[in-house]
Design a protein around this nucleic acid. Structure first.
Lengths: 120, 120
DNA sequence: TTAACTGCAAATCTTTTGCACAATC
DNA sequence: GATTGTGCAAAAGATTTGCAGTTAA
């Protein structure tokens, strides 16, 4: 099904290149559709992730974040400011398979270090 | 400080090569020390992780798991049976730095695929 | 029409925390 | 004797779910 709510959630997530939490998405969506419920946001995010349109990022000790950009890229969690930034490198599947000796269907690479702003 | 509880939690975690959840650790610890509390288990696990003696694994949509083996290795989440198994490959820091072009302080690589049992 | 989705609120699950007491240094 | 840890139970934070009513196919 395609509801206004689902379209709105997708619009919010893809509007910026930031990595929003469900709550931030909820607040942004609520600004345009005041009666929207948190549960609806979560349900639609789950659907969008399932549809392959949105990527879910699991953050250690913090709420999950959602990324509207499905192009292949990795994420850097800044040791200093905590921001999540994108790292545009190609698909690493083959590199990881040869490094680990394990055939894989998918992988998640989380890098911690200093983001471009903090590295100065 | 070094308490009986902390020693017991460490013993439980390192006793097997499995990747136990806090609750499993609590149950195993309770078997040897019936009055031990969940909060104590969590507090000691946090300390042990901080001490670098135990590794914490963040599992998507599931409770965290704790790994008593601190030697460098990665984890495979089986697509079929959901088990977490170890992949013994060397340190991938340099390989990842060159693949991503990003200096890093640490990384977490999560691989999904078929474990040795399910791949048959 | 009927199957899927919504809003609301309550429930769930995991983890953390406040507190009075106890153990360790 | 001072500090740090413990057990208990309650709180917190994030996400999910039941339900009655609504919307989309």
């Amino acid at each position: 099904m395609n509801t206004k709510q689902k379209a709105l959630v997708l619009e919010v997530v893809t509007a910026t290149c930031s990595h929003m939490t469900a709550e931030e998405i909820y607040i942004a969506a609520k600004a345009k559709m005041p009666q929207i419920a948190m549960g609806t946001v979560y349900r639609n995010l789950a659907q969008l992730v399932n549809d392959g349109v949105v990527r879910k990022l699991e953050i250690p000790n913090a709420p999950d974040r959602y990324d509207g950009c499905t192009e292949c890229h990795e994420h850097l969690y800044c040791d200093k400011c905590g921001k999540v930034s994108d790292i545009w490198c190609g698909d690493l599947t083959e590199a990881i398979e040869s490094a680990t000796g394990q055939k894989l269907s998918s992988y998640t690479l989380t890098i911690r270090g200093l983001c471009s702003e903090c590295a100065v």
